[in-house]
Design a protein around this nucleic acid. Structure first.
Length: 513
DNA sequence: CTAGGGTTAG
């Protein structure tokens, strides 16, 4: 079962810590491996040092099993293993990262209730694991304010437990806060850090630059870069790549290019990711020749395109309807021994369908099946969507009906595709029927489902009906997304001063705060 | 032993 190497205890030597020789974490690839390794470790006498447990935790974080790391951390504290700075930093990072990971929705309601209880009864000694679950749940539920309050409590508890906050602790927290756009709190932490004589470094600065870029505030990000340079910090390839990506996201690919060109002169070695960012930027601006030129340049610069490069290129080519070029690259890359990944197949299927090559998409599905690869339900959602868009309604519905025969269960995405089709065609009753069906099965509608239906109702001009639906939606914790909001605004322009629409917009703005 | 980047989705 488990395939890690476990050397004998007496195999020790030459200055290296015996602990380090004993366990090999690189082969841990899943939850089971992690737990069996942990079990093995705690059965060892004497117990391995916290450093060795840190290596385990770090591996578990690398494979993104945050809850596993948290539960092991919790167990460690219960065992009385003394926790150090490193462990603490890993754990805080878990809290900050795990809100991006899917969590059972059921946890959330419980977590919020539990949190209220803690506040009410001042039950301060919550286990670390529960603590993580709560923070996770709150983030997932969009209640970041509460999550941050909790994080800060943990944070302020550190010195009392004899653990010092260091630049890593602050960087992890600043990263978490800035990706959540909690800039006020970032500022407070930043000042506090300096007051404690802990100074931001290149990673701290880069983290802030990256978050600003992702928010679309690339000019502000550039200001931060200048401050950083002024303070004698040397930006590295990650700092500049983040900034390049920021310019690309704003469509300012020429400015991204300037940075790209200036990097080697500053002694920074461009890597595959720097190229990927710029190639993507060019494609998004439809500058196909520039994108392809860079792509073809990579091998001459000693860089090998990776799967993300190929995915970017394939998608870019399909978007400008250069199907044969895309297919050629797809074959080329496989001939060179590069394996397509899940995203590659999604892009191929979507690209083929979107360019009227539905038959080709079907044969690709067959190919995936023949290769014995996992038939991901997402592939079918893409092809279904393509079929609907190509007006091949019967084929699409037949594909949906065939899912069970392939051992696939429709998920919320395939349902959304179906609901979207009904909604676009104005078949609102049918859309709502399907919504009911998803609720009856254990396949829960999500925010996208509600948005699709709401947009359908709005397009049909039934504004009162839409208001009712919006109330239901908000009642269930889902909010209009940007494209629904845009639709609301454009409808308001066409129906000047329409009270119902105005009310909806007000309702949306006040509820999302 | 701990912190930062790119492709993607109804």
């Amino acid at each position: 079962m488990s395939h890690f190497r476990c050397l004998s205890t007496n195999l020790v030597s030459n200055g290296t810590s015996p602990d380090k020789l004993r366990f090999e974490f690189g082969n841990i690839n899943g939850v089971d491996d992690a737990f069996s390794m942990y079990k093995l470790m705690i059965e060892t006498k004497p117990l391995p040092s916290i450093r060795v447990f840190n290596s385990l935790l770090s591996r578990i974080v690398k494979i993104k099993q945050y809850t596993v790391a948290l539960s092991i951390f919790n167990d460690l504290s219960n065992l009385g293993v003394s926790i150090d700075n490193y462990a603490m930093n890993i754990v805080i990072n878990c809290y900050c990262s795990s809100h991006r990971v899917d969590f059972g929705l059921s946890v959330i309601a419980e977590a919020q209730e539990l949190f209220r209880k803690i506040v009410r009864e001042r039950l301060c000694e919550v286990g670390n694991f529960m603590f993580g679950v709560i923070v996770d749940g709150l983030c997932k539920a969009g209640n970041t304010a509460m999550a941050i309050q909790l994080l800060r409590k943990l944070f302020y508890d550190m010195p009392r437990k004899g653990i010092n906050r260091d630049v890593v602790t602050y960087t992890v927290l600043i990263n978490g806060l800035s990706t959540l756009s909690r800039w006020k709190e970032v500022e407070v932490l930043w000042k506090e850090m300096i007051r404690c004589n802990i100074y931001p470094n290149v990673i701290t600065f880069s983290t802030v630059i990256d978050a600003l870029c992702k928010e679309g505030r690339v000019d502000k990000a550039h200001d931060v870069l200048n401050v950083m340079i002024q303070k004698n910090h040397v930006p590295d390839v990650l700092t500049y790549s983040a900034l390049m990506d920021g310019y690309c996201l704003q469509g300012r690919v020429d400015e991204a290019r300037k940075i790209f060109d200036s990097m080697p002169g500053m002694g920074i070695i461009l890597n595959t990711i720097s190229y990927n960012i710029l190639i993507n930027g060019y494609f998004k601006q439809m500058k196909i020749d520039d994108a392809m030129h860079l792509f073809r340049m990579m091998p001459h610069k000693g860089l090998e395109p990776d799967v993300a490069t190929y995915n970017t290129v394939l998608q870019g080519l399909f978007r400008v309807r250069k199907c044969s070029a895309a297919l050629q690259i797809f074959d080329e890359k496989q001939a060179a021994g590069h394996k397509p990944d899940f995203h590659t197949y999604c892009i191929m299927l979507d690209g083929l369908c979107g360019n009227g090559l539905v038959e080709r998409a079907f044969s690709l599905l067959d190919e995936i099946e023949k290769k014995g690869l996992h038939l991901h339900i997402q592939y079918y959602a893409i092809v279904m969507d393509g079929l609907f868009k190509a007006q091949k309604l019967d084929t699409a519905r037949a594909l949906f009906a065939d899912l069970p025969s392939k051992g696939l269960e429709p998920n919320v995405i395939t349902y959304n595709t179906l609901i979207n089709e009904c909604s676009e065609k104005g078949l609102l009753e049918e859309a709502k029927d399907i919504l009911l069906e998803t609720e009856q099965r254990s396949c829960f509608p999500n925010g996208v489902t509600y948005n699709i239906i709401l947009r359908g109702i709005l397009k049909s001009g039934e504004f009162d009906e839409a208001t009712k639906f919006l109330d239901i939606m908000i009642g269930r914790g889902f909010y209009p997304d940007p494209s629904t909001y845009e639709l609301l605004l454009s409808l308001l322009q066409m129906n000047e001063h329409n009270r119902t629409l105005l009310n909806m917009i007000t309702k949306f703005s006040s509820s999302s705060k």
